[in-house]
Simulated scan of single mutants.
Amino acid sequence: MITQLNIVGGVCILLALLHAVFPSYFHWKQELKALSLLNRQLMYVHTFFIVLTVFFIGLLCLTAAKDLVTTRLGNRIALGLAIFWALRLWVQFFGYSAQLWRGKPLETVVHVVFSLLWLYFTAIFFMVFWSGWKLYPFAH
């Protein structure tokens, strides 16, 4: 389980770093120009905090994997992260329109890859939680 958490951690850090190219790749300067200053800044600020959150999840998995697996607090954090990534997986299908990827080869591959990635993250964190459930039930 620790190895899997380390893999999740490395991928999360890579995902966080990948966001650095979003503004230029998605042409945010031009695309967001029509938005009000508040909405434009909300996009940048919220993206920054999403990146920061994903980076810290990665750092946690790389530096405290053993604690996530072997402690009561780690068990509860793993449950929270399982829920976080399960919700992200749900958004992949119900928050984004299928028009963004259906019938487009590259976008379909990206959709499938990220769907599988969110499923993998959800499964790993849920397994970490479940493996500690007998040791650290909520009743105690």
Rank of each mutant, 00 (worst) to 15 (best):
W118D: 07
F94Q: 04
A82P: 04
F114T: 13
V113D: 10
L116N: 02
L100Q: 14
L100F: 14
G103I: 06
S115L: 06
E107A: 15
V91C: 01
H111G: 00
G95N: 02
Q92P: 02
W90E: 06
V113G: 04
E107R: 14
L106G: 01
T108N: 10
V109L: 15
H111K: 11
W101E: 02
V91S: 03
V113A: 15
A86D: 04
Q99I: 02
W118V: 01
G80N: 06
G80M: 05
A86C: 13
V91F: 09
L81G: 13
L87C: 08
V109P: 03
R88Q: 09
F84E: 02
L87F: 09
R102L: 07
F93I: 07
A98V: 07
R102V: 05
P105V: 15
W90V: 04
Q92A: 10
F84T: 12
K104Y: 12
L116R: 04
W118A: 07
L106Y: 11
S115Q: 06
G80S: 09
R88W: 00
K104Q: 13
V112F: 12
Y96T: 08
G103K: 07
A82Q: 09
Q92N: 10
L116Y: 02
A86T: 14
L87G: 03
V91I: 11
Q99D: 06
A82F: 12
V110I: 15
E107V: 02
E107F: 11
W85F: 15
E107S: 12
G103D: 03
G80P: 05
F84H: 11
R102F: 01
L89C: 08
L87W: 07
S115W: 05
H111N: 10
L117C: 05
H111P: 00
G80K: 03
L89S: 00
W101A: 05
K104T: 07
E107C: 03
L89Q: 04
G95D: 00
F84D: 03
L116I: 02
F93P: 01
F93Q: 04
R102G: 00
F94Y: 14
A98I: 06
Q99K: 09
V110Q: 11
F93K: 09
T108A: 14
L89I: 03
W118T: 07
S115G: 15
K104F: 10
Q92V: 08
S97W: 01
